[in-house]
Nucleic acid binder design. Structure first.
Length: 565
DNA sequence: TATAACGATTTT
DNA sequence: AAAATCGTTATA
C-alpha cells in the first residue's frame, strides 16, 4: 500500500471511530465528511458508507475490477473481510485493497448470497415467482432454445415474470428491497437508499446508480441523506457496464420519465400475461347441465354431450310456450306481408292464364281467317303497275346487306334471314313441357342431344316452308290505317304477292311470342310462390318460433301489416 | 412508442 | 461451459 493511501485510510479509520458509519449526517460521505457527491464514489459492501475515490485512492478503473469492496474501517474490525476482485482482470491488476468494484450487480450477488436470485425483478412471493416451469407457450418461451426458438429475445417466460415488479411494492420495500426497483420515482429510490441497512438484496438497483447523473441527483434530493452506492461525475468512469457508456446521454429528467414508462409497460405486460394465465387456468368448472354436479370437460361447459342437450331441451321447454302464445296473440308483420304477396301472385297467375287463353283464341281466329281465305278466288288484276312508284326507294337486306328493289324486298329478306338462321342452333337438353300443344320446335338433335328451342313457326332450321301452289290466293286480311281491318282479304296469287309474304307465319309467331312471355311470367310467379311458402313454413316451426320475433318498439303506433297496392 | 435484438451478467 | 435473463439500444 502506498504511504499516502495508507495515511488516508488511517484518517478514515479515525473518523470512523468517532462518528461511525451509521452516524453520518445527511449527505455527508467519505472520510472527508463532505457533502460532495459529484465525484466518483465507491460504497463499502459492509457498512454501506460511500467514499470518494480520490479520498481513498481508488480510481474508477480500479473500481471496475472490484467485485466486493470493504472500507478500511470494516476490514480492520473484521479481518475476514477482504476486497474481492473479479476473476478475469482482477488477477492481473493491482491488488491494492481499495478498489471499487464496478458492477452493482456484483454487490448484490454477494449481498444476497442467501437469496439465490439474480434478479431484482423478483418479489419471491407472487405466483409467478413461485412458478418453476416455463409455459412453453408465450412469445418468450417460444424464443427459447429449449422450445426450439432462435434465442433472440432472451427473456423470462411471461408467466414467470414477477407480478409485483413495477407495481406498488412500496409497502414491502423494507422487507423486499428488490421490489423497490419497480417504482422508479426518485423519492422512492431515495428512501430505499436511506434504508441502506437492509442489505442490499437489491442489487440491481445499484446499477442504476451507476449512472452518474442519476445517482448524484438522487442523493442530493434524498431527505434522509443516505447515499447511493457510487457516483461519479464523469460519465464514462464509474460505469463498468457498457450500457452505461452507451446510454450516457440521458438527463436525469429523462430517466425519470423513462422509468415511469417502464412501469406502465410492465403493467401492460402483466395484463397480457394474465390473459395467458386465464387460458391456462384449467381448474375444472362445474357442468352446466341441469342438476349435474360433475366437473365440466376441458374447454367445455358440460361434462358430456348429454348434459348439453339436456340443458338445451330444458331451455326449449321454458322458452317455447310463451313464444307460441306470443305468436298467436300478435301477428307477425312478415307473415302478413307474405300472405299479401301470395294473394298478389295468385292474381297475377290468373291473369297470365287468361291471357294465354286469349292467345289460344287468337290462334283459332287466325286458323279461321286462313281457312276462309282459301275459298277466295284469285283476283285477275295486275298489280305490276304500282311497283313502279316506289322504284326510287333503295333498300338493303338487314341480313346480307345486299341492295334490293322494293318489289322483292320482303321476300328476299325473309328468305335471307331463314338461310342464316338455319345455320345456327338454339338447343336445350330439356324438352319443352307446357300444357297444350307446344309452340316450340323441339326438334331433337341426336348428336348434340338437345332440343331446338325456336318457335316452331320461326324455325327455318327444322321446318321447311310449305310449297305454294300456283292457284293459291294470298288471303291476308287487308287493313287501312295500319291496324283497322276492312274485312277484305288480299286476293292476289300467293306466289306473287310481295306485300304479304308469309303473313300467316308472322302472325302466328307474334301470338306465340306473347304466349312465351306469359309462360315465362307464370314460371317466375311459381318460383316466388314457392319461396314464400318455404319461408312461411320455416317461420312456424319450432326453430322459427325460437328465432323469429317482431318487436313493436313504439306502442303508440302499433305496427300494421302493410297493405298491398 | 412498442417491439426486436443482443451483449453482458448471473445462475446452474 | 451452458443456460437464463437483464438492461439497454436499434429498429419498425
Amino acid at each position: 500500500m502506498l504511504p499516502e493511501r495508507q495515511a488516508k485510510v488511517e484518517q478514515l479509520i479515525r473518523i470512523m471511530d468517532h462518528e461511525g458509519p451509521g452516524g453520518a449526517y445527511e449527505q455527508e460521505y467519505c472520510i472527508c465528511r463532505s457533502k460532495d457527491s459529484t465525484r466518483f464514489m465507491i460504497g463499502c459492501d459492509n457498512c454501506e458508507e460511500w467514499y470518494h475515490g480520490d479520498c481513498i485512492g481508488v480510481t474508477q478503473k480500479d473500481a471496475e475490477l472490484i467485485k466486493h469492496f470493504y472500507c478500511a474501517s470494516c476490514r480492520e474490525q473484521d479481518a475476514s473481510l477482504e476486497i474481492k476482485y473479479k476473476h478475469k482482470k482482477s488477477s492481473s491488476k493491482e491488488k491494492h485493497s481499495f478498489h471499487k468494484h464496478s458492477s452493482d450487480r456484483e454487490f448484490r450477488s454477494r449481498e444476497d448470497s442467501n437469496s439465490k436470485k439474480k434478479s431484482s425483478r423478483r418479489c419471491g412471493e407472487c405466483t409467478a415467482c413461485h412458478r418453476t416451469e416455463d409455459c412453453a407457450r408465450c412469445d418468450y418461451c417460444k424464443d427459447m432454445k429449449k422450445f426450439g426458438g432462435p434465442n433472440k429475445i432472451r427473456q423470462k417466460c411471461r408467466l414467470r415474470q414477477c407480478l409485483n415488479f413495477g407495481l406498488n411494492m412500496t409497502s414491502k420495500r423494507s422487507e423486499k428491497p428488490e421490489c423497490t426497483l419497480t417504482t422508479e420515482t426518485e423519492s422512492i429510490r431515495t428512501e430505499y437508499y436511506s434504508g441502506a441497512h437492509d442489505d442490499d438484496d437489491d442489487d440491481d438497483y445499484m446499477d442504476m446508480d451507476d449512472d452518474p447523473e442519476y445517482g448524484s441527483e438522487n442523493i442530493e434530493k434524498s431527505p434522509k441523506g443516505k447515499r447511493g452506492r457510487k457516483k461519479s461525475l464523469s460519465d464514462s468512469g464509474s460505469a463498468k457496464k457498457k450500457y452505461k457508456k452507451r446510454g450516457r446521454k440521458h438527463s436525469p429528467d429523462k430517466k425519470t420519465k423513462k422509468a415511469k414508462e417502464n412501469a406502465s409497460e410492465l403493467k401492460r405486460k402483466r395484463f397480457e400475461v394474465e390473459d395467458i394465465r386465464e387460458i391456462e387456468n384449467d381448474e375444472p368448472q362445474q357442468c352446466f347441465g341441469p342438476g349435474c354436479i360433475e366437473p365440466a370437460r376441458p374447454n367445455s361447459k358440460y361434462c358430456s354431450d348429454a348434459c348439453g342437450l339436456k340443458l338445451a331441451k330444458s331451455r326449449i321447454y321454458e322458452l317455447l310456450p310463451p313464444k307460441i302464445q306470443q305468436w298467436q296473440s300478435s301477428p307477425c308483420v312478415t307473415e302478413e306481408n307474405n300472405k299479401k304477396m301470395l294473394e298478389k301472385i295468385r292474381r297475377e297467375q290468373l291473369e297470365c292464364r287468361q291471357k294465354l287463353a286469349e292467345l289460344d283464341l287468337k290462334h283459332q281466329e287466325l286458323d279461321g281467317t286462313i281457312e276462309r281465305a282459301k275459298h277466295v278466288s284469285i283476283a285477275p288484276e295486275q298489280d305490276e303497275k304500282d311497283n313502279e312508284d316506289d322504284l326510287e326507294l333503295s333498300l338493303y337486306c338487314v341480313t346480307c346487306g345486299a341492295e334490293l328493289n322494293q318489289k322483292g324486298a320482303l321476300r328476299h329478306m325473309e328468305k335471307c334471314f331463314s338461310k342464316f338462321e338455319a345455320q345456327t342452333s338454339f338447343g336445350s337438353i330439356y324438352k319443352t313441357r307446357i300444357e297444350g300443344n307446344s309452340m316450340f320446335c323441339d326438334y331433337y338433335n341426336t348428336q348434340q342431344k338437345v332440343y331446338c328451342k325456336r318457335l316452331k313457326v320461326l324455325c327455318p332450321e327444322h321446318t321447311k316452308e310449305p310449297k305454294v301452289g300456283p292457284e293459291e290466293v294470298c288471303g291476308c286480311p287487308l287493313v287501312i290505317h295500319v291496324f283497322k281491318e276492312t274485312g277484305e282479304v288480299c286476293r292476289a296469287p300467293k306466289k306473287k304477292c310481295n306485300k304479304h309474304y308469309c303473313w300467316e307465319k308472322l302472325r302466328r309467331a307474334e301470338i306465340d311470342l306473347e304466349r312465351v312471355r306469359q309462360w315465362l311470367k307464370l314460371d317466375d310467379l311459381f318460383e316466388q310462390e314457392r319461396n314464400i311458402r318455404v319461408s312461411m313454413a320455416n317461420r312456424v316451426g319450432v326453430l322459427g318460433l325460437m328465432l323469429h320475433q317482431t318487436v313493436d318498439h313504439d306502442p303508440m303506433n302499433p305496427i300494421r301489416p302493410p297493405t298491398m297496392e
